[in-house]
Simulated scan of single mutants.
Amino acid sequence: MELLLVEDNARISEFIVKGLEENGYSVVLSDNGVDARSRIAQKEWDLILLDIMLPDIDGIELLQYARFKKIYTPILVISALGEPDDKVKALDYGADDYLSKPFHFKELIARINALTRRAKLRYDDTSDILKCEDLVLYIDKHKVERGGREIKLTLQEFKLLKLLMENKNRVLARTQILDTVWGINYDTNTNVVDVYISYLRNKIDVEGTAKLIDTVKGRGYLIRTHD
């Protein structure tokens, strides 16, 4: 498994590279944003470990670049910026997980393993299209339509809708949604799931259409058919 580490702090990068190689990973180091952008574009990595504060091009710009180019390699942000707003911003721009510095190395390995497992499950899924009533989600194209009308979603909105549609007519708890879509251990009192459900409803459950996304009080959310 080949990982790209984007980190400009020599002490930290040496620590991470040494630890990952001892755990059987092959690691390529990039210490600035310009070089990282080139490496991200040149080949397909199994996982990208990305710092936010970088010379030339910062980590958020690299996230935007990768997702704009439809590069869906799992990206784990590792940053000293540990405030909730910093995490939400990175996740909104396409990060799959977020780990704050300083961290325990065992946790880094666990998060890498979790992300690569999820990626493998996605690649093994032979179904490219998910449907619920007149709502259609094209996985590979990252495209959503309802009644033939295209709906523009952010990456996190798309991931949330995909999870709901993969579990059609099944209630998903907020904690399950957090773990699967955002991949980090949020404070259980966070309302990020509720906020994104509201975003999806505003785009999908428009006037004149059946309401597909339901709240099950005390349990969570589901997307249901109306057979």
Results as ranks from 00 to 15, higher is better:
I213N: 02
I129R: 11
E22W: 09
K152F: 09
E207P: 01
D35K: 15
F103W: 12
N189L: 13
D128E: 07
A10E: 10
D125H: 15
V77C: 13
M1F: 14
G94T: 03
E83V: 00
L212T: 00
V27E: 08
D205I: 00
D205T: 01
L99V: 03
I75C: 09
L4C: 01
E7P: 08
V181E: 14
V193Q: 10
S100C: 13
L161M: 10
I177R: 14
G33R: 03
L153P: 04
K87M: 14
K120F: 09
D96C: 09
L163Y: 15
I12G: 04
Y72S: 03
I16L: 12
V34Y: 06
R224T: 07
K120A: 13
E22T: 02
L160Q: 06
E157I: 07
K211G: 01
I109D: 10
G24M: 15
D205Q: 00
G59R: 10
L164H: 05
I71A: 07
V28G: 07
R37L: 15
Y196M: 04
V171K: 08
L108A: 10
I48F: 08
K152R: 13
D96W: 14
Y199L: 14
L121P: 03
W45H: 15
D35N: 15
Y186K: 04
D205W: 00
N191S: 09
L155N: 06
L164F: 06
A110E: 09
G148K: 00
E207M: 00
C132G: 15
A41I: 03
I16P: 11
I40P: 14
D31G: 01
R37M: 15
V28C: 08
Y65H: 08
N113A: 15
L212C: 00
L163H: 13
I52S: 07
L212V: 00
I213C: 01
L81M: 10
D187E: 05
D128H: 09
E145D: 11
L49S: 03
N191C: 07
E61P: 02
G19H: 15
E150K: 04
T180M: 12
D31C: 01
T175Q: 13
M1N: 13
R118E: 08
E21M: 02
D124R: 11
N32L: 12
L163E: 10
E21W: 00
T209C: 04
V193T: 14
E107Q: 00
Y138Q: 13
Y199Q: 12
N185G: 02
R67W: 12
K143F: 11
H226T: 10
T73L: 14
L29C: 04
N202M: 05
I78L: 01
V206E: 14
D92V: 01
A66G: 02
P84F: 13
A95V: 03
D214P: 12
K87Y: 05
H226S: 10
I112Q: 04
D187N: 09
E7S: 06
